[in-house]
């Protein structure tokens, strides 16, 4: 990162500390007793979408909001973005109120469906969003080219989005979320509508962002996606926070031990069983592990792209 940019970020951080004495630069997102009730036209309570949510997202982590449909994940994201107003409580982003426009300078947002202008081309789309960040023409152009290449749409950059497949629109949606090189990226169901390859690429992208020191908040109901990329998760159910913590500690089964090894003959299995029983252990299963369907699919696709025209050896078996 250029020195000048670092200085600017430090200055803006200092400014924030001056204007908000409680601001901790390590806490990027903060929900304080955040509640949202939807009302009907007559002001009567319709749905209580979020109930007194308290959480913090720290700088540099990938945070997942997990829950079934209607649990309040998207509502939380919309409250953090200022698209909805809280019924009570506060949503703070970079120490600023969520309704503050200037906070958006450091935010990238990918909505649940890529709500983009279908009459624009990929280039025009990124140019438009770049302008909204007040980026000079040269920077906009470079950044747009870089992102289009990164999401693999160089070949279709001059086509209107109306001609794009759902996956392609999702990719350009991600590109628009990254146009300003944001510090915080909010992803609403990021893998929705993507094929396994796209899903994998999206997850790789999230991990890459984390490696770059970005903070990512994502919400999803696809548990595997969350498990693969998130450092910490919050589980919501009917608008209430049910669980909050690190993924690895939440998923750890303390009273079981898993050992994986290779090149051990079948004959050694009996000895291993004997050792475990000797120590009072109970063998739950001992078998050859299976790969995931995702892994299988990805390896077939990889092989096919390396050897076009050949049928996969695995498929023959």
């Amino acid at each position: 990162m250029p020195a000048a940019e670092v200085n600017t970020k430090e200055q803006s951080s200092k400014k924030l500390q001056q204007s908000n004495p409680d601001y901790d630069p390590n806490i990027v997102v903060e929900a304080q007793n955040l509640s949202k009730i939807y009302h009907d036209f007559w002001g009567r309570q319709k749905v209580r979408a979020l109930k007194a949510l308290d959480l913090e997202v720290r700088k540099g982590e990938v945070f997942g909001l997990l829950g079934p449909n209607g649990s309040g994940k998207s509502t939380t994201i919309k409250l953090l973005l200022g698209l909805l107003f809280p019924t009570s409580g506060r949503a703070l982003v970079f120490g600023k109120d969520a309704s503050e426009v200037t906070k958006n300078e450091k935010i990238g947002y990918l909505p649940e469906e890529s709500y983009l202008y279908r009459f624009l081309t990929a280039e025009e789309t990124l140019d438009f969003y770049g302008r909204l960040f007040d980026m000079p023409a040269k920077v906009r152009k470079e950044r747009a080219a870089e992102l289009i290449e990164k999401v693999g749409l160089t070949w279709a950059k001059r086509r209107q989005l109306r001609e794009y497949s759902k996956g392609m629109v999702r990719r350009i949606g991600l590109a628009q979320a990254l146009i300003n090189d944001p510090e915080l990226i909010l992803l609403d169901e990021p893998t929705s509508g993507l094929d396994p390859l796209g899903t994998r690429e999206m997850k790789d992208m999230i991990i890459e962002l984390k490696e770059q020191g970005k903070t990512v908040v994502m919400c999803s109901h696809l548990l595997a996606d969350v498990q693969d990329v998130c450092d910490r998760i919050a589980i919501l159910y009917q608008g209430e926070l049910k669980e909050l913590g690190r993924v690895d500690s939440l998923l750890k089964v303390s009273d079981e031990t898993q050992v994986r090894f290779d090149n051990v003959p079948e004959s050694a299995h009996a000895e291993i069983r004997a050792v475990i029983e000797k120590h009072g252990g109970n063998i739950i299963s001992m078998e050859n592990p299976k790969t995931t369907l995702e892994e299988l699919f990805l390896s077939i696709v990889r092989e096919s792209s390396e050897r076009p025209g050949h049928r996969s050896d695995r498929a023959a078996n």
């Binding site: 973005l81 958006n104 969003y129």
Partner: peptide
Amino acid sequence: KTIYTVVTKP
């Protein structure tokens, strides 16, 4: 909802 991607910019 195209406005979502606009108002979430500065």
